[in-house]
Nucleic acid binder design. Structure first.
Lengths: 198, 198
DNA sequence: CCTGCGGGTGAGCGCCCGCTTAGGCACCGT
DNA sequence: ACGGTGCCTAAGCGGGCGCTCACCCGCAGG
C-alpha cells in the first residue's frame, strides 16, 4: 500500500504501458507484474485490486492536468491579456497530452472501467479543469478580446480538441508536441474570435 | 453468416449497445446474445467470432462516415462556395456522431480490439475520410476563402473535434445534435480563417 | 410422407483470469 | 541471538470466458 515506493512506481509504469496498448480490460495482472519484473502476486502487496491501480494512475494524471491549467492561466497582474492566458493554457495542455500520450490515453479513455466511487472523484477533477478553462473564456469575453456566443459549448469544444490529441498522437508522426501545441493554440484563438493577432 | 438477416441485425444492435457501455473486452458473448433474445451459441451461427462482429459494426459505421462526407462536400457547380461545403460537412458529420453516439463510440474508440487484417481495412476507410475533408480545405485555400498555414494539421484537428463528440455526447445533455452541429460548423469556419461570415 | 437443411438450443470443454494463501528471506530493534 | 516486519514468490482456487458440439425443430421439395 506504500504508493510512492520504487516497486509501486514500477508497477504503475508497467500498468500505464499495458493499459495504453490494450485497454484496461484486455490487460492482465500477470502482464503488468511482468513488465515491472515481478511475480503476479506482488501487485497485491502495493494495490488492493487492478482497478485501484487504474484509479491511482487516473488520479495523478487528472491532478497534473488541473495544475497545468491553473498555472498557465494564472492572472498575474491587472494588465494581462486573456488571449495570452488562453494561448499558454492550450499550448501546455496539448503538449502534456502529446508528450505523455500513453498516460493521457489511459487517463482520458479508460474512465469507464473505474468503480462508482472512484469515478465520482475523477469526474469532480474533470469538472475543475473545465471550470478553469471556461473562466478564461469568460474573462476574455468580458474584456472584449474574445467574441463567443456559446461560452459553455465552446469551452467543451476546446477541451475536446486538446484531449483528443492523446488518441492519435504518435512520436513517429510528423509533428513534435511543441509544434502541435503552437498549431492548436492558434486554432483555439481563432475559435474564440481573437483572430490570432488582434 | 447471412449478415443482413433479422437475427444477425439484432445481434449487431445488441453488440453495439454492449460495446458502447462497457467496451469490447468487457463485453461477453453471453451478454450480446442475451440482448438479442438468443442463446450464447446462436451468435456463432451468424458471426465467426466476437471480433468479426465488431468488425462488421466498425465497417458499416466507417462506410457511413465516408458517404456522409462525400455527399455533403459534393462540388455541384462551378460557383460553389467552399465555406458552404465545409459547413455542410461538419454539420452532418457532427450530427451523425451525436445522434448515433453509441455506434460512433464503438466505431471510433474500439479499433484497437480489431485483428490486424480487419484493422488495416478500417484504417484505409479512415484515410479516405480525412482525404475528403482535406480536399475541401485545399479548395478553400486555393479559392482564397480560407486562410490556413498547416492544411494537414488543421484537417486532423477538425476531424478530432467532430469525432470527440461521440465520447461525451449524451441525449440528456443540454444540446441537441443539430445545435452541436451548428456550433461546431461555426467554430470550424473560424478555425479555417473564414470568419464565419466573410 | 419422408428428407434435408437453415436456424436454433443446452450443456459443457479447456483455458486463463483476478486474486489468495502459505511460506521464505533479508534486515531491524532489543 | 532472535522474534518481528516488509517485501516477495510458487502454487493454486474458483469462476467466467470464448467457443464448440450434439442434438432439435419447422418447413420446402419430391
Amino acid at each position: 500500500m506504500t504508493v510512492g515506493s520504487d516497486a509501486a512506481l514500477r508497477l504503475q509504469a508497467g500498468a500505464v504501458e499495458a493499459f495504453a496498448e490494450r485497454g484496461f480490460h484486455a490487460t492482465t495482472t500477470r502482464d503488468i507484474a511482468g513488465r515491472a519484473g515481478m511475480s503476479p502476486a506482488a501487485l497485491y502487496i502495493h494495490y488492493k485490486t487492478k482497478e485501484e491501480l487504474l484509479f491511482q494512475i487516473s488520479q495523478v494524471g487528472h491532478e497534473r492536468s488541473v495544475r497545468i491549467l491553473e498555472e498557465s492561466t494564472e492572472a498575474t497582474g491587472s494588465g494581462v491579456r486573456h488571449a495570452e492566458r488562453l494561448d499558454r493554457a492550450v499550448r501546455a495542455f496539448v503538449r502534456w497530452h502529446a508528450e505523455h500520450h500513453t498516460t493521457a490515453r489511459v487517463v482520458q479513455y479508460e474512465l469507464a472501467a473505474l468503480g462508482e466511487e472512484h469515478y465520482a472523484r475523477i469526474v469532480s477533477l474533470r469538472r475543475r479543469s473545465e471550470e478553469i478553462l471556461r473562466g478564461v473564456l469568460e474573462d476574455g469575453v468580458a474584456s472584449g478580446e474574445f467574441h463567443i456566443e456559446d461560452i459553455r459549448g465552446t469551452t467543451l469544444a476546446v477541451m475536446s480538441l486538446c484531449i483528443d490529441v492523446a488518441r492519435w498522437f504518435s512520436p513517429e508522426g510528423r509533428k513534435t508536441p511543441d509544434e502541435i501545441g503552437s498549431l492548436y493554440a492558434d486554432l483555439v484563438l481563432r475559435m474564440v474570435g481573437n483572430g490570432g493577432h488582434p
